[in-house]
Design a protein around this nucleic acid. Sequence first.
DNA 1: TTGTAAGCGTTATCAT
DNA 2: ATGATAACGCTTACAA
Lengths: 334, 334
Amino acid sequence: MATINDVCKLAGVSKATVSRVLNNTGQVKPATAEAVYQAMKTLGYKPNSLARALATNKTNTLGLVVSAFEGAYFSSLMRQASETTAKSGKQLLIMDGGHSQESECQAINSLVEQRVDAIILYTRKMPPEQLKQMMQTLSVPLVVINQMVEGFEPQCICFDQYKAACEATEFLINSGHRKIACITGPEDSVNSRLRLKGFHDTLDKHQLTATGFYHGNYFTQSGYLGCQALLDKQKPFTALFTANDNMAMGAIRALHEHGRQVPGDISVMGFDNDPAGEFLIPSLTTVTLPVEAMAQAAIEQALLLVKDEKISPVDLFAGELIVRESVDQLQKPS
Amino acid sequence: MATINDVCKLAGVSKATVSRVLNNTGQVKPATAEAVYQAMKTLGYKPNSLARALATNKTNTLGLVVSAFEGAYFSSLMRQASETTAKSGKQLLIMDGGHSQESECQAINSLVEQRVDAIILYTRKMPPEQLKQMMQTLSVPLVVINQMVEGFEPQCICFDQYKAACEATEFLINSGHRKIACITGPEDSVNSRLRLKGFHDTLDKHQLTATGFYHGNYFTQSGYLGCQALLDKQKPFTALFTANDNMAMGAIRALHEHGRQVPGDISVMGFDNDPAGEFLIPSLTTVTLPVEAMAQAAIEQALLLVKDEKISPVDLFAGELIVRESVDQLQKPS
DNA sequence: TTGTAAGCGTTATCAT
DNA sequence: ATGATAACGCTTACAA
C-alpha cells in the first residue's frame, strides 16, 4: 500500500507539498500539483485516515450505537442517521449495542478508543444515572435518543411516549371501548413504562381499569403469546392496546386463531407506525413515531457539539394517530 | 484525554512498560503492573486505537457494506455479522452502500482509507466485472455476499437463487396451479434475474407459461402496486409467485381489496422467510434464505483471509420451502 | 524486569 | 512555492 513517501519520490517533491495538494491547503504551482496527482494515480495511493486522524486529532467520524438491528424502526433510524452524517461529509460508524447494558458500554468504549468525534446512543438498557455520568465524564460529546437526562437536555432527543400512549388510549375509549387489555414492553425499559403509564392514566381519567396486561419484548412472537395469555384468562375485552406494531401483528394472529374477528370482535391499536402496518389485513391503526426526524435531529446536535457550538434543547417529538382499520368504532367519537 | 505518556509519568515507568502491561506482552513485575493499572484508572486512560493501528498496521476492524438497511433480511445479516465479528475480538464497521453504484464505491473506498483488515460487501448495484477488478486490485481482502465472481469463488458467499425459485414454482405447480403470475425484483439485479429465470424455466419444463409478470423493487408497496397491475390486466391466475415476502404482503393486501380470498381464490408464494410471514393472515408459504449462516460464513472467510490463510470455496447455500397457509392445494401434490 | 529510540503515515510550523 | 522537521500516541526491537 503506497504511502505519501512513495508519492513524494515519484513526483520528486517533499511530503509537505504532497500534503498540500492532498488537502489543497497553501499555494502550490499547478504544474507540480499535476505531477503529484499523476504520481498518486499511478501508485493507486489512498491517504491513510488513521495517520491523518492521529495528526489532526479529528477522525471525521460519528459513532452510532443502536440497541437492536431488527425492526423497521431501527432500519429507519440507521438509514436516516447515515444519510444526515454523509451530507455533513463525515463517516458514520454503526455499532451493535447488543442485548445487555454491559455490551452497550463496550460499544461506547470502543467508539471512544477509536476517537470518534461524537457518539449517538439509542439505548434500551442504560439507566439514567449512568447516562448522566457518561455525559459528564466521557471525553467525546454524547447524544442520546429516547431518554431524558436531567441537566443535559440539549443532548437528548426524545419522543413524548406518555402523551402518545394517552392519545392512543383515548382514541380507543372515544371509540366506545370500555374493556381494554394491554400488551406492553419490557419492564426494565423507561419508554415502555411511560407508554404503560399513559395507558393506565387515561383509563383512570375515565374511571376505567385495564382488563389485563402482559409484558412483551417488542417481538412479534411475544405479541402472539401475550394475546393468547390474555385470552386464556377469560376476562373479555373489546380492545387491545399494544406497545408496538410488531406485537400488534402477533396479537392479531392469535386472535384470528381463536376465531375472533379484528376489528369486529376485538379492536387492536398498534404503536410505531411500522410501514408494514398499512398493508396488513386489517390495516393497523397506530401512532407514528417520527424516527427519521429524531435521527436527523440527533446527528445535527452531535455535529454542533463537535464544532463546539452551544446547542439548545430540541422540542419533544410528538406522535400522531394514524386511523386505519384495526380499531372499530363502537360508537361515534365524541 | 490522557495519553500513554501521562500514564508513564504518573506511574513512574517508561512507555514500553506501560505498553507491556496494556497488551500483557513481555514480563513485568506485578508491583509495577499494579502501579500502571492504578495510574490508568485515575487518569481514565483509554488507549488510542488509531495510534495503535498505525504502529501495528492492523486495525482489528472488519468493514461491512450493505445495500440497504430496510427489511428483516438486512437486519439479520447485520446482527449476525456483528455477532460473529465480536466473537473474534474484532470490530465491525457497518457502512451504508446507498442507492447507487457510486455510493457503494465510496463506501468501500472509505473503508480502505480507514485501513480495515477486510471488507464484506453485500451489493445490489455492482456489476460482476467491477467486483472482479476490485478483488484483484484492492489492497484489502474482499468477500462478497450473493454474487459469484469467477476465479474468486472462495471469496463469494452465495445462495442458490435459481434452485430455490425452481422449487417454489414447482410447489405451486405440484399444488395444481397452472395459471401463475409473478412479481419479480428489479431488472438490474442479478439475483432477481436468477429468481425469475428459475420461475420461467420451471414453467417451461411443465409446458406452461407465465400468466403475467411485474418488476417490483422489493418494497411492500411495489408488491401492492404490482398485484393491482396484474389484476387490471384481466388475465386470470390462481397463483402468484413473488420475489420476496414484503412484496407478497403487499400483493395479498391488493388481492384483499379486490375481494379475492387468499389462498381460496388466489395462492401467494413468498421468498425470504421474513419472520413476520409466520404471523400474517394467511401465514406465508415461502422459502427460507439462510442469511444468518451466510453472514457468518462471510465473516469467517474474511477472518481467514486476514490471517493470510488459504481458504476454500464455501458451498452454495440452499433454500428450504416453508409450507404455510398462503398457498392452496388445488390437488394433492404428486 | 525495564528503558531507549526508531518507526508507523500524516499534518503543520518554520524556514528558505 | 517548496522543503525540513517536529509532533500525534502507540508498538517493538534492542540495550541495559
